[in-house]
Amino acid sequence: MIEAQQLTKRYGERTAVDRLDFTVKPGTVTGFLGPNGAGKSTTMRMILGLDAPTSGSVTVNGRRYAGHAAPLQEVGALLEAKSIHPGRSAFHHLNSLALSHGIPRRRVEEVIELTGIQAVARKRAGAFSLGMGQRLGIAAALLGDPATVMLDEPVNGLDPEGVLWIRNLLTGLAAEGRTVFVSSHLMSEMALTADHLIVVGRGRLLADTTVAELIRKSGGDVVKVASSDPARLREVLAGPGVEITGRSGSEELQVTGVTAREIGLKASEHGIALFELTTKGVSLEEAFMELTRDDVEYHGRTTTQAVQDTEAAEPVGSAA
């Protein structure tokens, strides 16, 4: 469990993280999404206490990270920046971290095996490939058998097999009841692993939502329908959760909230001829871009509220 309250970090004039409020819950994979420079890494550094917040606070399992007796057992973190000495072997790197907590050597061997770096464990970490370095970072993160696993861009530099391994690892950790917090700038990757999403842009919270909800809010599956009488079709389809848009004078409508099948049935019921009926899946990448592009419009906490408001109003007044 990670809880941030009004978490803010300023570097001189620049605000890297701006009054973030969020909670990362155990038992699910929470994606931390945002374009480069959105403040994801800074937020993670503040969670670990590497950077001190300018104002606000962040706690892990109810306490400041530094306040825990065995920090590595609370949070295992992989940071984006390299956090190893290139002259030290993977084994010695892990072992020296383990010694600080009294973690037995057996556990060091275990995480080496778990991350598949046995073959290079005795080699200098500086000579590792990007993928091997990433695996070593994950081995370090898992060392303390942590209740919370926090990974900054874990799939960076991994081959497809490695990417798949990370996905399974993350969902496995979450299924064990752990808190899993993963950052990425790739929406598509998040969609495959995360259940919950925290989206940030320019340091501000843009959305705190589920993947499914985000897709729905950013249009969801849109059905394009062209008919002889768009005005009537609009009346026929109107209902709660249905959003219809279309230019006046055009015979084309964009409908969300109803399936193409339902539209077809309703149209035939009311004798409206259809010329075209196509389902257009929304790309997650687009949904994400849409969200982050307008980050001026979506302010921090008000995001979800604002979206809900417009949504409630829409079924009635969404005429073009």
């Binding site: 206490g49 825990h68 390299k82 000495h85």
Partner: peptide
Amino acid sequence: TGMIRSTLAAVP
């Protein structure tokens, strides 16, 4: 080298 991040994460 960046090792300090690992060090201080272990001993905050």
